[in-house]
Amino acid sequence: MLYHQVKVAQALLSGVAEGGRGTTGTSHPKQPEKALKLYEFEGSPFCRRVREVMTTLNLDYEVYPCPKGGQRYRQEMKKLGGRRQFPFLVDENTATQLYESQDIIHHLFKHYGKTGKTPKKYANYPKIPVVALAGTILNGARGVWVNKQILNREAPAQLLELWGFEASPYTRIVRALLTELELPFKFHNVAKERWQDQGLAVLRLKPGKYQPLTGGKREQVLKIMGDNIQVPYFIDPNTNTQMFESAKIVDYLKKQYGQ
């Protein structure tokens, strides 16, 4: 448990280094009809830029983890795009395939943002991702390399599902392990939609029973989770497993897919 808390602290510092990006998002996202597909790996600073914007737009998407040394999806994405370069976005709604984090970000705001334009905050990232790279280092470079014990294994028949948001330290720990185990999953963004949502589930700025924004995405998420919003929340349809708590999810993934 102590080791897990160390990982939480590192993941929290990683989020702080990025200035809190990937925490808040629109309450009424323009969710595409067909799922966006992102080939990436958790520890990549370039991929992190895209994930932050995905949270800002509150978009759900499918993740196909491509850690260094991995075999399952690195070959697949090379067949699709011709290169092993990350991130790589597949948007079947617009018949688009894109490399380059900045190009992907422009595409996302153009098609799924409110105005169709990329805000200045996200329009001119530096070529060298110093801040995001610092976040990766602070997080112990987790989610960079494949777990060699799982090489050549088949992927689960159905996509795993994970609810969270980019900057959540607890969610980051789970995503890193999913990357290392090359486990594909659908990521459901649960961005904080207003000031009342800020803080941990048990320490929100507004005390009392949690009330989501009427008509917002969190109102729909609450119907799935129960009487409160807490991330990460995980579902494995292959084993009919549902659970909260990052430590429990990590333990489950290691036992089910990491041995």
Rank of each mutant, 00 (worst) to 15 (best):
M1P: 15
Y3V: 14
Q5R: 15
V8L: 14
A11S: 14
A11Q: 08
L12D: 15
G15S: 11
V16C: 05
G19N: 10
G19A: 01
G19L: 06
G20Q: 07
R21G: 06
G22W: 00
T23P: 00
T23V: 12
T24M: 14
T24V: 14
G25K: 09
H28N: 11
K30R: 15
E33N: 11
E33Q: 13
A35K: 13
K37T: 14
Y39V: 04
Y39L: 08
F41M: 10
F41G: 05
G43C: 07
S44G: 10
S44P: 04
S44K: 05
S44R: 06
P45D: 06
P45R: 03
F46N: 12
C47A: 13
R48W: 14
R48A: 15
R49I: 06
M54V: 07
M54S: 07
T55D: 04
T55A: 09
T56C: 11
N58Q: 06
Y61L: 00
E62P: 10
V63N: 09
P67N: 03
K68F: 14
G69V: 01
G70Y: 01
Y73S: 00
R74I: 11
R74W: 01
E76M: 07
K78E: 09
L80Q: 00
P87A: 05
F88A: 01
V90T: 02
A95H: 12
T96G: 00
S101Y: 00
I104H: 03
I104T: 01
H106M: 03
L108H: 02
K110Q: 12
Y112T: 01
Y112C: 02
T115C: 08
T115L: 05
T118M: 05
Y122N: 01
I128C: 09
P129R: 06
V130D: 05
V131N: 05
V131C: 09
G135N: 03
G135K: 04
G135A: 03
T136M: 09
I137V: 15
L138Q: 01
N139P: 00
N139Y: 03
V144M: 01
V144R: 07
V144G: 02
W145I: 04
V146P: 05
V146A: 02
N147P: 02
L151S: 02
P156A: 04
P156S: 10
L160K: 07
W163V: 07
F165H: 11
E166C: 09
A167K: 13
S168H: 10
L177E: 12
L177I: 10
L178Q: 07
T179N: 04
T179G: 01
T179V: 09
T179F: 00
E180W: 06
L181R: 09
E182I: 02
E182R: 06
P184E: 04
K186R: 15
F187W: 13
N189H: 12
E193Y: 08
E193T: 15
Q196G: 15
Q196S: 11
Q196C: 09
D197Q: 11
A201K: 15
L205P: 09
G208N: 12
Y210M: 05
Y210P: 09
Q211I: 13
P212R: 04
P212W: 10
L213M: 15
L213R: 15
L213Y: 11
G216D: 12
Q220S: 10
V221S: 12
I224M: 12
Q230P: 03
T239L: 10
T241G: 03
Q242D: 02
M243D: 00
E245A: 02
E245Y: 01
S246N: 01
S246V: 00
K248P: 08
D251V: 05
D251P: 02
Y252K: 02
Q256N: 05
Q259A: 13
